[in-house]
Structures are given as C-alpha cells and as structure tokens.
C-alpha cells in the first residue's frame, strides 16, 4: 500500500497551526479537569466505590442466629484451598458442651490473607455454609503474622448468617434425649 503524502501549505510548514491546534486540545482538557466537568479520578480513601453483588472479597467465618460457630472443622476448605491459605486445628476428643456436645467445631481456624487468592472455592465446598467471601478488599497489617487471621477475628468480621434449617440444634436435642433415655 502506498500512502499519499499530502503536500503541506506554507502556513502548515511553519508548524504554527499545528502548535495552535495542540494548545487548543490541551487547553480543553485542562479546563475540563479544573472546572470538574470531567471527572476521572476517585479520591480513594475519602471516596470509596460501591462493591457490587457477588464480589469475591476476603473469606470470613459466620455464626448462626443463636451464636453457634457454623464451622464443624471438616477441613474440606483446607484441602481444596489452591494456595493452601487455610489451616484448621480440629479439637481433641473431649466433648465440649457449648458446641451442643454433638459435633466438633474448630479449635482454631487460620486464613493467611497474604496467600489467599479470593477464588471462593472454600465457600463453594463448605457443606455447612460456614465460610463466605465478603466485601472487604483492602486488608492491611504491619507484619506477616498480623495478616494471618485467626478464628476469633474471622468470626467477628464474618458476623451472623441466618440458618433456616438449624441441623445441629436438632441433632443436639436428639442426642440429649437419647442420653436421658438411658
């Protein structure tokens, strides 16, 4: 392909119309920005964007409406977690009454937020609906240790998730009835 080169007029050869045109363009951008007619930058810490539905932020643990930790430390999330960010310490064999005496809640639940890739597989795999990716996106800390979130912090950040079935409550009642039956 041959590109035809336009013969420039004398005025165009002096560069001056080109410069004037350039100044016009930059002036337009300048005044648009200064007058605030065109706004492109968000003043981040002061202004924040609304997090859309379905956003995959930091994973936190939830409790049900009666204050019971929903996690039963089945460790499915620990196994599926691609970057191995989750570490669950299961409880020992002794029965703890505050858990209803029926199942095992986690002794400790750690998520290393520096390793987490926010893929959501833990939420997907959880049979108890105990872990959810929430809307937090700017996690900060002063040290690596601080960025490993433990059970208490995760539960506090996660809040309460409404459970309509309350499976473990029924199992608990059942177990207690059988215990008294003996």
């Amino acid at each position: 392909m041959i590109v035809e080169r336009k013969e420039l007029s004398f005025l165009e050869k002096t560069y001056l119309p080109g410069i004037a045109q350039g100044i016009k363009i930059t002036a337009r951008h300048f005044f648009d920005t200064v007058s605030g007619r065109k706004k492109v930058t968000m003043q981040y810490p002061e202004e924040k964007w609304t997090v859309p539905e379905g956003y995959r932020g930091a994973p936190y643990l939830v409790k049900d409406q009666e204050g019971r930790t929903k996690c039963v430390s089945c460790q499915l999330c620990e196994f599926i977690c691609p970057p191995k960010a989750i570490k669950i310490t299961p409880p020992g064999p002794e029965v703890r009454d505050e858990l209803g005496g029926v199942e095992k809640g986690p002794e400790d639940f750690e998520i290393n937020m520096l390793r987490c890739i926010f893929c959501g597989l833990c939420q997907e795999v959880c049979p108890e609906e105990a872990i959810f990716l929430m809307k937090d996106y700017s996690l900060t800390g002063q040290s690596r240790e601080e960025m490993i979130y433990h059970k208490d912090k995760l539960l506090e950040l996660g809040g309460v998730h409404n459970d309509t079935i309350m499976k473990w409550k029924k199992k608990d009642e059942e177990a207690r009835q059988q215990a008294s039956f003996h």
Partner: peptide, 10 residues
C-alpha cells in the same frame, strides 16, 4: 498540577 489537569488527572 497543570500537567495533571492536562492529562485528566488531579
């Protein structure tokens, strides 16, 4: 500041 305004920044 002027360069920022020209480039639509702050």
């Amino acid at each position: 500041r002027i360069s920022a305004a020209i480039q639509d920044r702050i």
